[in-house]
């Protein structure tokens, strides 16, 4: 089973030791989401300083793919500006873990891979609506999040 296209060393390692795992008390953004069909379930917490993501954590229950992608996403997003997060694509996340092929090969498991990104986009969406009153950015984000998979 060496050279498994999904369960690479990196995925297994991240699933065992997820990064940025935990809660942020009184986070500026807190968003929960789950995949109703497979049961992956995560909470994402973000703090915003100016226009930057100053801190980000996640916790929840999920498979190795979900845990690894959530970990990598938080690593990639930390320190980015809201504008950069808005433009951040699923391809960027998937390629970081070598999982681009899931889009074609596994319509089931792609949901595990993208749950955290969907949660992030929805979280930022509500932040744009509630705090920044920026409905144009919010609208695009909402649409993107809803159509992620």
């Amino acid at each position: 089973m060496s050279g498994d296209p999904i369960y690479t060393e990196m995925i297994i390692e991240y699933s065992r030791n997820p990064s940025n795992y935990g809660k942020l008390e009184d986070a500026h953004i807190h968003r929960h989401d789950s995949n109703p069909l497979c049961g992956d379930s995560i909470d994402l917490y973000l703090n915003i300083d100016g226009d930057k993501i100053s801190d980000i954590k996640f916790d929840g229950k999920g498979c190795a793919i979900c845990m690894a992608c959530s970990s990598v996403l938080t690593e990639m997003i930390k320190g980015k500006t809201l504008d950069e997060v808005k433009k951040f694509t699923k391809d960027e996340l998937l390629s970081e873990l070598g999982l681009e092929h899931l889009i074609k090969t596994s319509p089931v498991r792609i949901k595990c891979a993208l749950l955290s990104l969907k949660t992030l986009k929805f979280g930022i969406y509500s932040y744009f609506v509630d705090k920044l009153k920026d409905s144009e950015s919010a609208g695009n984000l909402n649409e993107e999040a809803a159509n992620l998979y």
């Binding site: 498994d4 699933s15 497979c38 049961g39 498979c63 190795a64 793919i65």
Partner: peptide
Amino acid sequence: VHPHDVGTIIDKEGVAIRSGHHCAQVLM
């Protein structure tokens, strides 16, 4: 190991089982 990972890996051996909450989240 999360059941979805078990399910995906043994699926490659041709074994079809169910992994998930089995529509019984109260029990989970």
